[in-house]
């Protein structure tokens, strides 16, 4: 029987691991679908306190992990596929294996959203991408589109100008959710063009993407644009499907936690990071709530 099992290894899960390990709870950390979390695809992280120079998301998460390992956190690759409550404890399935634990810290984060059109799936990996840092280099001297209006979209667009001939940001409404500093960087980049408020209606091509049909969201006008790549950065959905029978979630699927705590609606189950954060979705916030989850789990175990 484990005392603490942490699911997920983004900033939330790994911060929980550091705190739980330092409290001598010997946490077992299950790495999840994306070891290191969403941040590993960030080319440069500029807003994590303590790092005055930009650091790559992959390097930053490697440091998080090292710190957790130093205090004795144990790591297992793979993902949890099912959770069951049993007499106040919990049973987790990981592949064919069952893990018994007294507490669970859910730090499974959020998964990138896909475009809700059939042609997106058809061309995924054939010009449609969800990872600019992974796939940008395939678009040297080509024309690409970035879909989205948040920080990720701006950062992706700026990163892609290293390779692409032109980058067009397509966003469905005038308002951009991205931080003003990111928007300004994108606006002042001569390779970046804007199509706002437009949406992609159809992606065209034979084997590979060759263009897209766009629709103006106000006038209804449609236009076909030639392009070789389409990078999708339209936000993330919390990964909570396997927990919904166990803990209360909001309409969007985010796990509900009690204010100023990591307690979910189930005793002994805690949540931290983007999986329970419909508002901020920042690495530093995730790290903070990861700490809260570990401290709450520790207090819960002591009281039992």
């Amino acid at each position: 029987m484990e005392d603490v099992v942490i699911i997920g290894t983004g900033p939330a899960g790994l911060s929980a691991a550091v705190y739980a390990a330092r409290a001598d709870l010997k946490p077992l950390v299950i790495e999840g679908t994306t070891p290191g979390g969403q941040l590993v695809v960030s080319y440069e992280v500029e807003n994590y306190p303590g790092f005055p120079e930009p650091i790559s998301g992959m390097d930053l998460m490697e440091l998080f992990k090292k710190q957790a390992v130093r205090f004795g956190a144990k790591f297992l690759a793979g993902d949890v596929t099912a959770v069951k409550a049993l007499d106040g404890d919990y049973l987790l399935n990981r592949g064919t294996e069952t893990i018994e634990t007294r507490t669970v810290i859910i730090a499974t984060g959020a998964l990138a959203r896909r475009l809700p059109i059939p042609s997106e799936a058809k061309f995924y990996g054939k010009g449609v991408s969800g990872c600019a840092t992974c796939d940008g280099a395939f678009f040297r001297n080509r024309d690409v589109i970035v879909v989205g209006g948040g920080n990720t979209a701006m950062e992706d667009a700026i990163f892609l100008t290293r390779f692409a001939k032109t980058v067009t940001i397509v966003h469905r409404r005038e308002y951009l959710r991205a931080a003003p500093i990111e928007v300004e960087k994108a606006r002042s980049n001569p390779k970046i063009q804007w199509m706002i408020p437009w949406v992609i209606e159809e992606i065209t091509g034979d084997q590979l993407v060759t263009g897209a049909t766009l629709r103006h969201t106000e006038t209804g006008e449609t236009r076909h644009v030639a392009c070789d790549g389409i990078f999708v950065a339209i936000g993330h959905d919390p990964q909570t499907e396997i927990f919904r029978h166990l803990v209360k979630c909001d309409k969007q699927g985010f796990i509900k936690v009690q204010p100023w705590s990591a307690h979910t609606s189930a005793l002994g189950v805690f949540a931290c990071g983007d999986v329970c954060d419909p508002v901020y979705k920042q690495a530093v916030v995730a790290a903070g709530t990861g700490c809260m989850a570990a401290l709450d789990a520790q207090k819960y175990l002591e009281s039992k």
Binding site: T33, Y124, G125, G127, C131, D135, F138, F139, Q207, V209
Partner: peptide
């Protein structure tokens, strides 16, 4: 090789049989 196979995303895993791609997986 990557260009000829039209690879535009990685990781991509391709299964070849006698030189011809028979299955392709994009993403982990």
């Amino acid at each position: 090789a990557a260009n000829e196979l039209g690879i535009r995303a990685i990781p991509t895993v391709i299964l070849f049989k006698d030189g011809k791609p028979v299955q392709q997986f994009v993403g982990v």
